[in-house]
Nucleic acid binder design. Structure first.
Length: 153
DNA sequence: GCCAACGTTGGC
DNA sequence: GCCAACGTTGGC
């Protein structure tokens, strides 16, 4: 059982969009970074939990919790020329990119802003606040997970 | 919109 | 394998 942080631009796919999905579950498409893919492909397990993070928006921050509900499987959007995630170099016989399905667990009453996280000593080691951090899927330690949850309770 | 920090590509 | 050029991410 691992903890993660997964970024999404709310203009593209917000936690409210996830809540509105059938079974409040959706495929996590479009990971096109090898390090993020490797985390997903090699480390993610059914039952893992992740913070849902809104990026590239007015108030970036953690907005809730989701759960991984499938094993990794080939990301079909890589084979779809009409998808913005199309990758002509991904061979269907040997898929380069993977997806998992995630299910909504909880939406926090208030967003936990990145600006707040940056001020907290107990979260100073989060990958999210490390210099040059760009990964859209990041591991979170149990200590960090619980420290964040403390802010919501 | 700016730009720092990364990641990827491709010539050599 | 090096590295310059280019592309992307994402906070501000």
């Amino acid at each position: 059982m691992n903890y993660w942080l997964m970024k999404s631009e709310p203009d593209e796919f917000s936690i409210d969009d996830l809540m509105a999905c059938p079974n409040q579950t959706e495929a996590w498409h479009g990971i096109r970074n090898y390090q993020a893919r490797n985390f997903m492909r090699d480390m993610m397990q059914v039952g893992d939990q992740a913070f849902f993070y809104h990026s590239s928006c007015k108030v970036p921050g953690i907005v809730g919790i989701v759960e991984v509900v499938t094993r990794p499987y080939p990301d079909s959007s890589a084979f779809n020329p009409n998808s913005k995630y199309f990758d002509p170099k991904s061979d269907p016989a040997q898929p380069r990119w993977v997806s998992v399905d995630i299910r909504f667990v909880e939406k926090f009453n208030d967003i936990i802003p990145l600006s707040l996280i940056k001020t907290l000593p107990q979260l100073a080691d989060m990958y999210l606040v490390s210099k040059g951090s760009r990964l859209s899927i990041q591991p979170v330690t149990a200590e960090q997970w619980h420290a964040v949850l403390m802010l919501t309770r």
